[in-house]
Every structure is written in structure tokens, then in C-alpha cells.
Design a protein around this nucleic acid. Structure first.
Lengths: 263, 263
DNA sequence: CAAGAATGATCGAATGTGATCGAATGCTTC
DNA sequence: GAAGCATTCGATCACATTCGATCATTCTTG
């Protein structure tokens, strides 16, 4: 066997083929076949499961049993999800871990918010509110008891609802905490920005309706720029990001009053 | 062949297939076939029963019995979709075919509305509005340019949004045509009814906001009853149903001013 | 060499499993 | 119907397996 074992993508592809061919495969068999540890195989299976290629079961994987995924694979968000997915997962988890349970939580539209939504089941007593169709699908999939969607005109760019309807709905609500996504964080100027104006307006309204506001963003978002300023640091309470964040930036942030959560 | 007997998910899937194939299976047979204890098999059957895939009986399981006249109120949309799917598909197609193109169309929450949504791409210039999460997902999947979602509190029973937020949003909109789902049509009294009060209120608001109103319902919905009256025939412009509809009922309907579309 | 990605080891938590036993159900007989 | 019997069911416990999260290490890449 050629030594391609370090090409993890190839291994995952072969696992998928095996599943397709045999209907189901056990973790044990895969460990033996590829000569890798259980941990590694499990990581593969998780990725395969998240991409919808297979369905995980206890002890292994089997062919996917849900024919049509609810979310078409070529939606922009799903592509962006490929960028630093692990960091985003950790950040999403950390954000939900911040909740005491029982709060009213606003979840923004963005891949990091999707990751947070995936963990909503950890705090099932919370009431979730979102403008994002993908977030809504994930809340539904986890059978979250109480969640609201802010309706409006659908925009494919960020898979969410905007416009007058959304603004009006947000004005009539109050949140305990909001988790906001963004495209860029400018630590020098102390601003957070996104690309789209309509989306920015919705975010501003959400921030105004929320008692506490946290940006959720991976380390790659820092010290880049984007078109529309959405908020200044003075309007925010903190940032949830990942521990790989550059130390210089961390130092600069510690000079602000922002609470920094590292996942 | 690798021994996958310990993959519990696969075993459940195979049990479901066996039931589908043979109509009914005894616990005893399954114990023998899979070499597992009764307790384990029973746990599998419970899970399968809870997911709605099969119906449990004493001593085993049988195929999901779909009582034609009435459907339990708490079955999620995806299962209700199994009831007369072909008729619903034809009705959904016929509804969209009624559109000239360019209208603002309200799509209600219900399996028949899902079928209509699946055909939205046939009239891509229309602007669609819905209160149903599943409908929204399908519109997105077809890359419909313009669609709105009426937000609000999510209710799993009919996969849609209701409450004050939804009512307020509907009041600020006007539709050219609304396609409404229902649980029952009482031709004697000339009324259309659903099971859920919150949902009924949303429907009433949608009807009030729409210039023309059409009920979309398969022939099984006629001359049954449901709890909440949503509309009287006098508020409606027509009914889209399928050609299998009983001739007596058809005759009675032709005495009204309703436009009847047979798919 | 430095940064990031992939890997392997470890451990507490979650899940699957089999056995037991009282309760519920179905069937037979009266 | 009602009584009695056999079967099936659900709840609980103990045990084994598997999973997910974390940390340290190795490998790859620029």
C-alpha cells in the first residue's frame, strides 16, 4: 500500500466509498484497515456525518437514511463553513456555554452563528431568536422548545431575512443577550463591520434590542476590514473567539472594557 | 462479510426494512434473526415507534397504519406527507399553474403547501410569502429570487410561525392570491377548519390581506370536521383539489360561487 | 524554525446491552 | 362477561462499549 495515510481527505473519501459499498462499517474495522487510532477515525466520521455523506451510529457509520438534505449544498454559507470549521465549532460551543439557561438569546446570521445553533440543545430552556433560515432549521432539528424567527425579505448572501418587516419585528422584542457575526473586526478603530447594508441595519436593531451584546468571530476576522460598520466596541460587551488569536491583538483588546472569551 | 451486528443504528434500519417488506414482524423472529436479547429488540422497536416509522403491536411491530379519514394532530409534517402524496403533488402543481407570473403569493403551512412550494420555480418571477419553515427551505433550495417569511413563534405541529409577531407582519402586507391549507372542509355548512387556534388566527389574517383566496386540499379532506373554523365559503374564491373527488360533493360545490380546480 | 494541521492517548460521560421482576395484555375456558 | 394462565411489556440495575473533549506530540508546509 502506498503511503498516502497522511492525506486525511483521501482516507475520508475511502471511508465514504466503503460505506457505500458495504452499507455500514464499524469503527473497529476502519481502525484496523487504515492503521489509525480510534480518535482519528472518529474525527473522520464526524466530518463525514456533518457533510451529510453518511449517517453515524453507535459503533460506526451506515449509509445515510435521509434522502434529501434540507439545505442545498451549494448555498454560500455552507461553503464558508469550510473556513476554519474547527475554530467556529469551538466558538459556537463556548457561546452557548456562557448561557445560564432561561435567557432570551438572539442568534445572528453567519457560519459561526450556525455553529452556536448546533449547540442550542445544551441549553434547551433558553428562548432563541434568529433572522437566519439555516439557524432556524438547526433549532428545529434539535427540537428546541421555544424559538422565534424574525421574518422579512430573504437574502441569499447570508441566508437571512432583512428589510422593514425584520426591523419592525426586532423593535418589538428584547433580548438578554445577542451573539453577532461579522466579516471584519478593526481593533485599531474599535469597530465591527459586515459587507451588506441591509444586514447591517438588522444587526444594529438587534444590538439596540439586546441587554448584552457579544461578537462571535474566529481569529481570522481580526484586523481586516469590511464595508459597513455595524457597531463600535463601546456598544459591545465582549467577543467570543478562539485561542489561536494573535497575542498582540489580545493585548490590545485587554486595554478595552470588552470581555474576551477564548474557546 | 464483516459482522456489523453491533451497529445498533443499522439494526434498527434493517428492522424497519423488514417491516416494510413483510408487513409485520414478531419480536421473537427479530431476537432470533439478530441474535440479541428481547430487551434490546424492544428498545429498538420503541425508538422506531417513536420516530413514527412503524406501529407497535403486542408481540411485534407492523407497518405504519395510515388511517385515511383522519390523522392524529401531533404528527409532524414529514409524516403527514406520506398521506396521498401523489394527489398533493398534483394539487400543488395545479395551484402554481394558476399563476400568471409576477403576483405576490401567500403559501400557507401544510403538506399541500409544501408541494406547491416545490413547484415555485415554474413561476420564478412571483414573490412568495410564507409562515412555514419547510416552505421557506424549499423556496431557498429552488433559488427563488424574491420571498418573504412571516416570522414569529415556531410551532412544531405545523412547522410554522404564529403569534403576535406573525399577525403584525401579515397586517402590513397585501397579497394577490393566497393558497391556504386546512384539515377539514365541511361542504354542508360551507366552512373550512383546522385544528390549532394560533394557526387559525394567522390564516384569518392572511385571508384578510389577500385579494383572492384559494384552499388547496385533497379529496380526503372533504366532509370531515376539525376544531377551529378558519373561513366560510363566502370569504373564499375557490378550491384546488384532485379529480378523485366524489361526484356528489362536486355537485354540491358547483351550486356555490366557488371556482373548483381539479388536478 | 514557526504555525498550522493531523494524530494518538487519556478519562469522564453517554449509550447500548442483558438479566430480572412486577405489571399489563391477550387468550382460553367457564 | 369473569377467572385463570401464558405471554409480552416496561422499569430498573449492573456491566461493557463507545463517544466526545482535552492535551501533548508528530508531521507538513512555508
Amino acid at each position: 500500500m502506498p503511503d498516502n495515510a497522511h492525506l486525511s481527505g483521501l482516507r475520508r473519501k475511502k471511508i465514504a466509498e466503503l460505506v457505500e459499498e458495504r452499507g455500514a462499517v464499524a469503527v473497529r474495522d476502519l481502525v484496523e484497515q487504515f492503521g489509525k487510532s480510534e480518535a482519528t477515525i472518529r474525527r473522520d466520521l464526524r466530518k463525514l456525518g456533518e457533510s451529510g455523506a453518511v449517517t453515524r451510529t453507535h459503533g460506526g457509520v451506515m449509509m445515510r437514511d435521509t434522502p434529501a438534505p434540507d439545505i442545498p449544498p451549494d448555498i454560500p454559507n455552507e461553503q464558508r463553513m469550510q473556513v476554519r470549521p474547527d475554530e467556529k465549532r469551538r466558538i459556537g460551543r463556548a457561546a452557548i456555554d456562557m448561557l445560564a439557561g432561561g435567557e432570551v438569546v438572539f442568534l445572528d446570521a453567519g457560519t459561526t452563528a450556525l455553529c452556536a445553533a448546533d449547540n442550542a440543545h445544551l441549553k434547551p430552556e433558553c428562548c432563541y431568536v434568529t433572522t437566519c433560515l439555516g439557524v432556524a432549521s438547526r433549532l428545529r432539528a434539535q427540537r428546541i422548545e421555544r424559538f422565534f424567527v424574525i421574518g422579512g425579505a430573504y437574502r441569499e448572501v447570508n441566508d437571512s431575512f432583512t428589510g422593514a418587516l425584520a426591523i419592525a419585528a426586532l423593535r418589538s422584542l428584547s433580548f438578554d443577550i445577542a451573539f453577532l457575526c461579522c466579516t471584519a473586526i478593526d481593533t485599531a478603530r474599535g469597530t465591527v463591520a459586515v459587507r451588506d447594508e441591509a444586514y447591517s441595519q438588522v444587526q444594529k436593531e438587534a444590538i439596540a434590542s439586546s441587554r448584552r451584546n457579544f461578537v462571535i468571530a474566529d481569529h481570522g476576522k481580526f484586523d481586516t476590514t469590511a464595508f459597513m460598520r455595524t457597531a463600535g466596541f463601546e456598544e459591545l460587551d465582549g467577543i467570543v473567539t478562539n485561542q489561536e488569536l494573535n497575542r498582540d491583538i489580545l493585548g490590545r483588546l485587554s486595554a478595552t472594557k470588552l470581555e474576551i472569551v477564548l474557546a
